[in-house]
Design a protein around this nucleic acid. Structure first.
Length: 184
DNA sequence: CACAAGATTGACT
DNA sequence: GTCAATCTTGTGT
């Protein structure tokens, strides 16, 4: 398990900016460098899927850091998370967006588009070919891998999480930016 | 059992 | 800007 994922979700989320997620499915490899992520905690976070109880869907969140958690969004899209933190303390980082750095032809085919390939959680998972079948797999032990690239964390902005009504006081959406200043 | 809300996206007015 | 698509869970009768 990558060390950065043993941190609590907000810290892990920041560390993940600039890291690269790679899938190899049917001999087709796609790599995406993360630019936008969101942290979700457990019992204390009303926006978290693990806020209420353990269910078949959110079960992977209760497993070890480095487990992949994929859920169906609005009955249509797949969204991909990486489980973080101490084992049994349900928390995860939602992978909301990134830039394709390898396998762009495969991503273009999967998305049926030439642009906006991974700028949104549903698009991100689709570009990587990630579906619910992969919920529960462990990073590095299956078709999904994670490579940490930057030695230092990249500049970022934080803001309330998108599409969330509860917990808007928590600024746990993190997106990469160019200016190395606006942290808080 | 019925039904509403949601960590979204793309097509269309 | 508006709206449909339709899976999973929580809540209420």
């Amino acid at each position: 398990m990558p060390l950065l994922l043993s941190q609590d979700a907000p810290e892990a989320a920041i560390s993940l900016l600039g890291a690269v997620v790679t899938t190899t499915i049917n001999d087709e490899r796609v790599s995406v460098q993360l630019t936008e992520v969101e942290a979700y905690m457990g019992a204390d976070d009303p926006a978290s899927h693990a806020f209420r109880s353990r269910t078949p869907r959110n079960d992977p969140m209760f497993r070890a850091a480095g487990t992949v958690y994929v859920y169906r969004s609005y009955g249509i899209h797949w969204c991909m998370n990486l489980v973080t933190g101490a084992h049994g303390n349900p928390q995860a980082v939602l992978l909301r967006g990134g830039e394709i750095i390898d396998g762009i032809d495969v991503a273009v085919r999967r998305r049926s588009r030439r642009d906006h390939l991974a700028d949104g959680p549903g698009k991100f998972a689709q570009a990587l070919g990630v579906t619910g079948e992969l919920s529960g797999v462990i990073l590095g032990e299956g078709p999904i891998g994670l490579t940490s690239v930057a030695a230092f964390s990249v500049p970022y902005r934080s803001s309330p999480r998108i599409g969330v009504s509860a917990g808007r006081e928590l600024h746990w959406r993190f997106e990469r930016c160019d200016e190395p200043s606006k942290h808080h």
